[in-house]
Every structure is written in structure tokens, then in C-alpha cells.
Design a protein around this nucleic acid. Structure first.
Lengths: 164, 164
DNA sequence: TAAGTTAGTCCAATATCTGGACTGAGTCGA
DNA sequence: TCGACTCAGTCCAGATATTGGACTAACTTA
């Protein structure tokens, strides 16, 4: 199966992966959330090739994650900004950054700190249940299909466990 | 810059992206969280090429996200399981699945539902602040570098905003 | 004994990513 | 008015990664 055929699958991660699933997109997006908006700034900060950057930004625009907006008349210049849909990726970005902070920081700690202005503290994200408000533990979650679907074959599997 | 050089960067997303940033890894992981553990099951469910699957699983093992454990003696057979480090990706997986559910579902709703066994309801994840416990809004977060670092050049940027 | 299961490897064709040069419109300073 | 600079890309050819399909290898089951 080719990557482009993934969205046909009955799986939200497959469809998400078409937009975010490549070497650069998540890094670009985390820069966008830091306030970076211009082509050359992305390019200089990330060291990504200009071709690939142009392709990624176009893809993100096509998928409604970013929009271009003019910030200068002469010469006409555009910058990339998050749409509401793009802003909806914030929890995922936070979760991925936190995971990177936890597992790949050096002795001095995470390279970038995030402060919750509302309470004034540096923080990390904790995933809570939308229904009861409690923090969610992976072992307390049970997944089920909406309905049987032959395109998404069943396999033998047990409950979620992990290697100790 | 090449993908392999990304982890040199002072950026947690760059380092995270080395492990997760490709077309298949997130999809494989979301299957792992559904309980899929065997090579052929991944391959049949995802339609990924066997070569790429083998490479991805090896990468995830090298990075300590999965481990192989023997589940059969004759012939010796191994299955892939999450380590504690891998289990730490659950918030990110939930956030990405929720985003896909929200933006790419058909009329009938998300293809897979997740139930919080603790409270008994189908749910989605809400990202909360580890310090004050409140739900986090992207606009209430302020990022800053731990310290100046020439390898990670500053750019002109304003506060986080988005296109309306 | 033949067919099936499981977990891969190997291969050549195709697709994607790379750095670097280049374009083009306009600004800035002297 | 000239020359250097800014910014957002495009274009190219070489390097790298992904693809589907065939194949291996060890063992089980009918």
C-alpha cells in the first residue's frame, strides 16, 4: 500500500499521518507554535531544504492546518499562520514535546520551557478524560470499532499490556 | 541538513521526530496501543511493505519504545511490546487520534471509539496543566529557551496568534 | 508428506529528499 | 542610480528511502 492510500483506511491515525507523518512536519509545526511564521525563518532555524519546506507548507495549507496571510504590501509578502484546525494540534504537540523533554534532555534539562501564564508555573501536559475529568492511564482505556468493517481486518489480540 | 542530524538540535521535537517522524511509525504505534504485537498482523492490517515494517520496528526497538519478547519456544517466536518509555507516548497518540476523529470522520462518526473504563464513558483527551490542573489553552502558554544557544538562532517573532 | 504459519531478507523499480544555484520583486543606504 | 540586501520561492541532478513481490528458514498441523 502506498502512503497516499492511507486515508482510505478506517483509522484516524492513518488519516492524521498523511498530514503529519513525515520527517519535518512536526518540527515545522512546533516552530509555528513558537511564533515562527516566515519561510526563511523556518529554513534557517531548521536547516531543512527549501524544496522540502515549500512542499510541507503547501501540504499543511492544503489540509487547512495553516493559512497564508499578507503582512506586507510592497513587495507582497505572506506569512503562515495556524487555522483553528491547526490550533487543535496543540495537545499533540505538547505531548510529543513533553515526551522528548523526558527522554532526550541532557543533564541541564529541557532546551525549551513552557510556562502556563494562567498559573505562572512551568508545566507539562497531563491528559485527562473529557467525561469524568480524571487523568487517563493507558490501561484504563478500552478501544472498540464503531462497527465491523472488512477493510480493517481483525487480528488475534489481547488486552493492552506492556513489557516490564 | 539531514534527518539523522536532527537530534543534534536543541529542540525536543527534532529529537522526537527522529523516532516518530515518518509515514508509518505513528500508525504502527497506534496499532500497538490497540494490542497488535506481531509482525504479520501489523503487515496485514496496515498493508505496509515488509521491508519498511522491519526497519520501523527495529528503529522503535533501538530507541527503547518497543521490546521483543518470546511468546513461543518451538519455533522461537517474538512479539513486540511497549516499554515504559513507549507507554509514555499514549497522550500523544490519544491527541493525534482525537484530532483525526474530529477532522476526518465521516457522517457516522469516528471509526474507533475509546472508552474510559474508570468512568464508563466514551471520551476524548483534554490536555491539563501539571501544576494547576486546569485545561491548557494554547494562548495561555509562553515558551522560553533554557538559555541562549547559538546553534538555535533567534528569529523575529511575536506572541502566539493565529489566523481567524 | 504437503500445506500452512510466522518473521523476516533480498531485489530492482519508483518516489522522495538533498544542497546549491538561481529567479524575481522590491528595499535600503550612499 | 548603483550595488548589496531581503524574502519566498523554483529548478536540477545526485543521493536516499520506499515499494511490491519473491524468497528463505524453522517449525506445526492435517
Amino acid at each position: 500500500m502506498r502512503w497516499e492510500d492511507l486515508p482510505e483506511q478506517q483509522c484516524s491515525m492513518a488519516r492524521t499521518s498523511v498530514v503529519l507523518g513525515d520527517r519535518w512536519t512536526l518540527v515545522i509545526l512546533s516552530d509555528v507554535f513558537l511564533g515562527v511564521r516566515r519561510f526563511d525563518d523556518f529554513q534557517k532555524r531548521l536547516g531543512i531544504s527549501r524544496t522540502t519546506l515549500a512542499n510541507r507548507l503547501r501540504l499543511l495549507e492544503e489540509h487547512g492546518v495553516l493559512t497564508q496571510r499578507q503582512y506586507e504590501d510592497r513587495p507582497p509578502r505572506f506569512e503562515y499562520r495556524l487555522t483553528e484546525k491547526g490550533l487543535g494540534l496543540y495537545p499533540a504537540i505538547i505531548a510529543l514535546l513533553d515526551w522528548g523533554d523526558e527522554h532526550y534532555s541532557d543533564e541541564a534539562g529541557p532546551p525549551i520551557l513552557r510556562r502556563h501564564k494562567t498559573c505562572g508555573h512551568d508545566f507539562h501536559g497531563v491528559m485527562h478524560c473529557s467525561e469524568c475529568g480524571e487523568a487517563v492511564n493507558p490501561r484504563d482505556v478500552e478501544a472498540r470499532k464503531r462497527e465491523p468493517d472488512d477493510r480493517f481486518p481483525e487480528v488475534k489480540r489481547g488486552p493492552l499490556t506492556y513489557a516490564s
